[in-house]
């Protein structure tokens, strides 16, 4: 088992929901998905590469035919998969500190959800509903979400300079190069190994 690969941590969580509440959650996700400004906190947290919520209605677990038996469940289930950078505690702490309202809106429909503040009780709940990853792959283990964003900015800026670099006079180039360096100077951080997760 490994929840960690390089700079990313894979979290899986599953929580039971009464089926009538599922519809409320679907409506909330619909709004969240279609009103982009509502996602800004998630974006600004900046240490989540990908995350998804998947609702499995109680009668919708995949069924491939016998000998598999159909599931007989009373609850719908909310699955949460996240790929985040940094430590588990940092992730939950940050969620609890700055996104508690949003989290509550998503998870309050789950049974026994204690609310995302104060953080220790919230962590106990997450610990209880988290299940571990057996195999975790990333194409760029040495890069975080921030590193990737930085790299794309450098690439874009480099491409722009490169397009005209050959036709400039040396003095024009000096000026263009200075502007180039100024444009990338906050995006040059080296990528590499992650600190030990604790």
């Amino acid at each position: 088992m490994s929840n960690i690969n390089g700079k990313v941590y894979a979290m899986n969580a599953i929580t039971p929901m009464r089926p009538w509440k599922t519809w409320i959650l679907r409506a909330i996700f619909f709004i969240l998905g279609n009103v982009k400004p509502l996602q800004s906190d998630l974006i600004n947290l900046s240490f989540i590469q990908f995350a998804r919520w998947v609702i499995i209605p109680r009668n919708s677990f995949p069924f491939v035919g016998a000998p598999q038996q159909r599931e007989l469940l009373e609850y719908d289930y909310l699955l949460f998969f996240s790929n985040f950078n940094g430590t588990w505690n940092q992730y939950i702490d940050a969620f609890s500190a700055v996104l508690s309202k949003g989290l509550d809106l998503v998870w309050k429909w789950s049974e026994k959800f204690p609310g995302s503040t104060p953080v220790t009780i919230f962590k106990e709940y997450i610990t209880r509903v988290q299940f571990d990853t057996d195999y975790y792959y990333t194409a760029y283990p040495h890069a975080t979400a921030n590193d990737v964003k930085n790299a794309h900015i450098v690439q874009q800026t480099f491409d722009a300079l490169n397009r005209n670099a050959a036709t400039m006079s040396p003095d024009q180039f000096r000026e263009a190069y200075l502007q180039f360096v100024l444009s990338v100077q906050t995006h040059l951080g080296a990528t590499g190994e992650a600190p030990i997760v604790f």
Partner: peptide
């Protein structure tokens, strides 16, 4: 999926690997 978040949603794996190389 009910809700899907992606920090970067307009770049392919290849573009990202290349960009990381360029950055370095």
């Amino acid at each position: 999926t009910t809700f899907f978040f992606a920090a970067t949603n307009d770049k392919s794996v290849t573009q990202t690997l290349k960009a990381l190389q360029t950055q370095r």
